[in-house]
Design a binder for these strands. Sequence first.
DNA 1: GTCTATACAATGATAGAC
DNA 2: GTCTATCATTGTATAGAC
Lengths: 213, 213
Amino acid sequence: MNMDTFIDPASVVAVPADQDLQARTRLLNAAVHIFDRKGYASASVREIAELAGVTKPVLYYYFGSKEGLLMAVLTEAQRLFTATVETAVARVGTARERIIGLCTDIYAMFEQHVPVVRVAHAVFLGPPEVAPPFDVTIFELSLRGAFAQIAADGVAAGEFRAGTTDDLAMAVMGILEGCNERQLHPAFEPVGAAGVRRLLDLLFDGVMNTPRV
Amino acid sequence: MNMDTFIDPASVVAVPADQDLQARTRLLNAAVHIFDRKGYASASVREIAELAGVTKPVLYYYFGSKEGLLMAVLTEAQRLFTATVETAVARVGTARERIIGLCTDIYAMFEQHVPVVRVAHAVFLGPPEVAPPFDVTIFELSLRGAFAQIAADGVAAGEFRAGTTDDLAMAVMGILEGCNERQLHPAFEPVGAAGVRRLLDLLFDGVMNTPRV
DNA sequence: GTCTATACAATGATAGAC
DNA sequence: GTCTATCATTGTATAGAC
């Protein structure tokens, strides 16, 4: 992919129309901003072009259509996501530490790129009938595959109880998703990286007061 | 609220334009159907009125605006939600059983009313700038309050470890949300009520193979 | 309460000059 | 590559007859 498509997080929230950036990059930043605030369907190409400081035909010259613009944003989100997962999976340590590490890495990446993540999140959970031709399930599948892999390692090493692999991956996904949604939703207070770790510790160690048999 | 606003789940997915129903009810069913499939922003009142078998002015006569129609749908969703939470909280048993009971009740209610829940879910997670004047946080707040109450009971009774109340509620919310999203998203296979219970058991009993100290 | 007909703004997209 | 000007369509909403 062209390096021109890189989205500078600071510029997204600060000055999308910074004249030092290329028109294509300014359009991407503006698109993330508007898609995030109004949703893809309610966003207008007019507004995006204005925010980017260019005219409408420039937008169509670079992206072909409104949907093409969304596709470019999603491609960028996928790049951020898979990079985070791959580097986190390669870590060493106990399975417990690796799972916590992957979760905190994902959580931190979401925190650093809230607008882009929110756009991708909205497409992922939104109505499939109007969704663009972008396989949004790769986010879920790759992340769950990573958790399942680490969990299987933990079971094989005797670190985790036998037969917990798939359920552990699913439970971790749920807890992480809950934390991320609280981070993405402006009405709630984020739990923070420490909170993510606390919730995962609860899952690993259990809740009951009586020792297991 | 008028009983006329009740949304028969079967009619929503089957024949929204059933002539035996009142125009207002047919409009509500059609709105849920269209909002669910295309999203609120992309849905057109033209299409909703046609599906309901009435003309546009009839829609505006009953609901005043497109947003009023969405508000009516959300109000119905809230009714379903709070009713489920209240009856589940009133149950007796151990805190662990009560938490599992509330989760499976919510899960089953979502399963029975997938279209309405998806619409409410989309508004809850969607962009706040275009959201209707409906406090979507009440879903999260009431549910988390219920979990925290039960968890506090469990801690007080010595059933759960001390200091786990809030984290337990958050972790349960996350796991439940993960299961519900897999149920609402057509690309994934639902975990089922048994899966929900398994994941919660994992949280209660812990994952580690070594006994806690 | 329900209809026909229409007002009117906004949309995504393009043609063609430069 | 970027502009001005414009098109065709669709959107929500309403006026007024019955």
